[in-house]
Design a protein around this nucleic acid. Structure first.
Lengths: 225, 225
DNA sequence: ACACAATTGTCAAAACATTGTAAATTCTCT
DNA sequence: AGAGAATTTACAATGTTTTGACAATTGTGT
């Protein structure tokens, strides 16, 4: 999955972008200042960076130059306040691939991201998906079992989606934790089990003898459609 | 067919756009100044307006504001001579949906038109629209419930419209904010809840047990006609 | 087959997060 | 200035996730 690193201190922008980009299949990671941003860039190796110029501590220009030096091919989109009518040429020389002035619409930015990455958007598991008497519409976030709607919680849905995307493969708890729960989140392993429990109770005919959500002892779980 | 109203005094632009847009299946109507433009807007009910800022007689800003007031959901794309950032901010506040600076290529404008219409899902809500005992006329901005008129405010209307255009789909607060509230606007998410509250109170039989405006915990809202 | 260790299933309480709601405040038009 | 709308605030109500105890199960070495 495409990982985007957003280096920006305005939390409202985090919120505004987070949802849209995740809906469109990007993983958006956020860093609130330049130092954290550079660190995150090195640690997470994103496939694209969105960088605010007006950052606390380290100026955005520095960050831009540094990222560009370490990863010359990594696309960078720069955000700048409308006030500082900056030098576009200078930005491009620092390694930026495009720039957007605030205020901007999340969708405008998304369009630029698409343009810059120019990468086909693969619809991996997209709806509708079905197994047994269960059918899942990921787009609408609805799941029905023999026609009747079954409410799933957010985490259950995420887990279901991940299983659907990786059928028949054994998936470890650690993998589920990082893929479904997110990187910076380390709940007890019991958490995963409990969610599997709910999935079984909601989707298996006999929850104590699961047919679809199988456990592979000592390794993890396997989804058999 | 999608009807576009072009309010622009430069005849060369008329010519350049007319041909391309009609080839692409849009009906392009032209008004050469602001007064004629407003009249045409009222008479022809276009599904999108392309508006030049530097108009004779009535300034484009006025026209934009007026159109936005009468039809808050009608997409407006603004053309302006200079890349003046102040204008961009102002325009978006006046209700423009996108902004193209001259000189531009007709194809670029076409792309923006496509983007804006797709975003607005304009085609997918026919007016009058009806569900349950409610019927909505989005063009006249009127809503009746079992025949009796129910006054909705602007935001409520916009939200209603967005829900109607996206039935059954889970819509997050962020999506509502960026689609209904607009570009450079990041109100608290509680704002959305309060508007949902009003919609429920005005349109649900039992506002505390909504049937149409459902909440999907942890994700957002879903409209079920 | 047996005991033992490690892993997993299950439940319910606790911790946490999200949402509903009304009232207060700010904003925007007249 | 005043009315109505939009937004924020504050808190209550609700729903979800995590945790930890314990039971049940599986795997391993003898």
């Amino acid at each position: 999955m495409e990982r985007i690193l957003l280096i920006e201190d305005d939390r409202r922008i985090h919120k505004a972008l987070k949802h849209l980009f995740e809906k469109e299949g990007y993983a958006l990671e956020v860093a609130a200042d330049g130092a954290v941003g550079l660190e995150a860039f090195r640690a997470r190796k994103p496939s694209l960076v969105i960088l605010d110029l007006t950052l606390p501590l380290v100026p955005g220009q520095e960050v831009c130059r540094e990222i560009n030096r370490q990863a010359p091919t990594l696309p960078i989109i720069v955000l700048s306040a409308a006030a500082d009518e900056l030098d576009k040429v200078l930005m491009l020389e620092l390694g930026a691939d495009d720039y957007v002035t605030k205020p901007f619409s999340p969708r405008e930015l998304l369009a630029r991201v698409r343009a810059v990455t120019r990468r086909a958007h693969h619809a991996s598991v997209e709806s509708p998906y079905a197994f047994d008497d269960v059918s899942v519409d990921f787009e609408k976030m609805q799941l029905t079992r023999s026609g009747k709607p079954v409410p799933l919680t957010r985490q259950e849905f995420k887990a279901m989606r991940y299983f659907a995307a990786n059928p028949e493969r054994v998936i470890s708890r650690e993998e589920l934790l990082s893929e479904v729960w997110g990187y910076n989140c380390y709940p007890t392993t019991r958490t995963v089990d409990n969610h599997l429990l709910s999935l079984r109770q909601k989707l298996e005919k006999d929850p104590t003898h699961p047919v679809h959500f199988l456990t592979v002892h000592g390794v993890g779980y396997r989804f058999a459609p």
